[in-house]
Amino acid sequence: MSNKVKIKRGDNVTIIAGDDKGKTGEVVAVFPKDNKLIVKDCKVVKKAIKPTEENKKGGFIAKEMPIHISNVKKS
């Protein structure tokens, strides 16, 4: 069964469910196999990262997490 996704990268969408309800943003990435997408500046979480060679300090970064397609609509 194929998953037909009508929302593409670059589309503007409005979030209709969840903590970020009412926010609008641009679609950054689409994952059709999982029926999820990432919206710019929505569902942002803080993720802890360990110190590495490139990042000597470590610390926290803000990262956007995927949202299910059923929770957004094209605007």
Rank of each mutant, 00 (worst) to 15 (best):
Met1Ser: 12
Met1His: 13
Met1Ala: 13
Ser2Tyr: 12
Ser2Leu: 13
Asn3Ile: 08
Asn3Gly: 09
Asn3Thr: 12
Asn3Pro: 00
Lys4Gly: 04
Lys4Tyr: 12
Val5Gly: 04
Val5Thr: 15
Val5Ile: 15
Lys8Glu: 15
Arg9Ala: 08
Arg9Thr: 15
Gly10Gln: 03
Gly10Arg: 03
Gly10Pro: 01
Asn12His: 05
Val13Pro: 00
Val13Thr: 07
Val13Met: 01
Thr14Glu: 12
Thr14Val: 13
Ile15Pro: 00
Ile15Ser: 02
Ile16Thr: 14
Gly18Trp: 09
Asp19Asn: 12
Asp19Cys: 04
Asp20Leu: 02
Lys21Val: 12
Lys21His: 06
Gly22Glu: 10
Lys23Glu: 04
Thr24Leu: 01
Gly25Glu: 02
Gly25Met: 05
Gly25Cys: 06
Glu26Gly: 02
Glu26Pro: 00
Val27Glu: 07
Val27Asn: 03
Val27Trp: 07
Val27Gly: 02
Val28Gln: 10
Val28Ile: 15
Val28Tyr: 06
Ala29Arg: 15
Ala29Lys: 15
Phe31Asn: 15
Phe31Gln: 11
Pro32Gln: 10
Pro32Cys: 05
Pro32Asp: 07
Pro32Ser: 08
Lys33Phe: 08
Lys33Val: 10
Lys33Arg: 14
Asp34Gly: 03
Asp34Phe: 14
Asn35Leu: 13
Asn35Val: 06
Asn35Trp: 08
Asn35Gly: 07
Ile38Met: 09
Ile38Pro: 06
Ile38Thr: 15
Val39Lys: 03
Lys40His: 08
Cys42Leu: 06
Lys43Cys: 06
Val44Phe: 04
Val44His: 01
Lys46Phe: 08
Lys46Ala: 10
Lys46Met: 08
Ala48Cys: 02
Ile49His: 13
Lys50Asn: 09
Pro51Ile: 08
Pro51Ala: 11
Glu54Ala: 10
Glu54Leu: 08
Asn55Tyr: 10
Asn55Gly: 00
Lys57Leu: 12
Lys57His: 09
Gly58Pro: 04
Gly59Arg: 04
Gly59Ser: 04
Phe60Tyr: 13
Ile61Tyr: 02
Ile61Gly: 00
Ala62Asn: 14
Ala62Thr: 02
Ala62Met: 04
Lys63Met: 03
Glu64His: 07
Pro66Met: 07
Pro66Tyr: 07
Ile67Ala: 03
Ile67Gly: 02
Ile69Arg: 06
Ile69Val: 14
Ile69Cys: 08
Ser70Ala: 10
Val72Glu: 01
Val72His: 02
Lys73Phe: 03
Lys73Trp: 07
Lys74Gln: 11
Lys74Leu: 14
Ser75Cys: 09
